[in-house]
Amino acid sequence: YKIYPYDSLIVTNSISVKLPKDVDRTRLERHLSPEEFQEVFGMSIEEFDRLALWKRNDLKKKALLF
């Protein structure tokens, strides 16, 4: 996945969300650098992957990456 800054990946309720063209809309968190991922989620990507799907989705919603 290509890395993008968190600010360019957050999704708000506005209709005209302009995400970069090559971003996987269903896995926005994968486009964060490991350092920024840790900062946003408070855990590593590996720890995040071990969580239940509902928990990952809940965290993504709170981080505006859903």
Rank of each mutant, 00 (worst) to 15 (best):
R25S: 10
V40N: 06
F66S: 08
P34V: 15
D24K: 04
N57Q: 10
R30I: 05
P34C: 10
V40L: 06
G42R: 12
K62D: 09
V23A: 06
V17P: 13
H31P: 01
A63I: 03
L28Y: 02
K2M: 08
D58K: 11
W54D: 14
K2N: 11
F41G: 00
P20D: 07
L28W: 03
L51M: 09
W54H: 12
S16W: 09
I3F: 07
L64T: 04
T12K: 10
L9I: 06
F66D: 08
V17N: 15
V40H: 09
E47Y: 09
D7S: 15
M43G: 02
D49L: 07
S8C: 14
L9F: 02
K62W: 05
I3L: 06
S44N: 15
D7Y: 13
R56W: 02
L59W: 03
Y6H: 03
I10T: 07
D22F: 05
K55P: 03
L65Q: 01
D49Y: 09
D49Q: 07
F37R: 00
E36P: 00
S14W: 05
L9W: 01
N57C: 09
Y6C: 02
E35M: 11
L32M: 04
I15V: 14
K62Q: 10
N13G: 14
M43C: 07
G42F: 09
K2V: 11
Y1E: 06
Y6V: 03
L9M: 04
Y1P: 12
Q38A: 12
N13L: 07
K21M: 13
P34D: 11
N13M: 07
V11M: 10
S14Q: 13
R25D: 07
V23F: 03
S33G: 08
E47I: 10
K62T: 09
D24S: 04
E46S: 12
D24I: 07
M43P: 00
E46F: 11
L53C: 15
H31S: 03
L19W: 09
S14E: 15
R30E: 03
L32D: 00
A63C: 06
L59P: 00
F48M: 02
R30N: 05
Y1Q: 08
K55T: 11
S33Q: 05
N13C: 13
K18C: 15
Y1K: 08
Y6R: 02
K2G: 07
A63G: 04
D49F: 06
E29L: 01
A63H: 10
E39K: 14
P34T: 14
K60D: 01
I15D: 15
D49K: 05
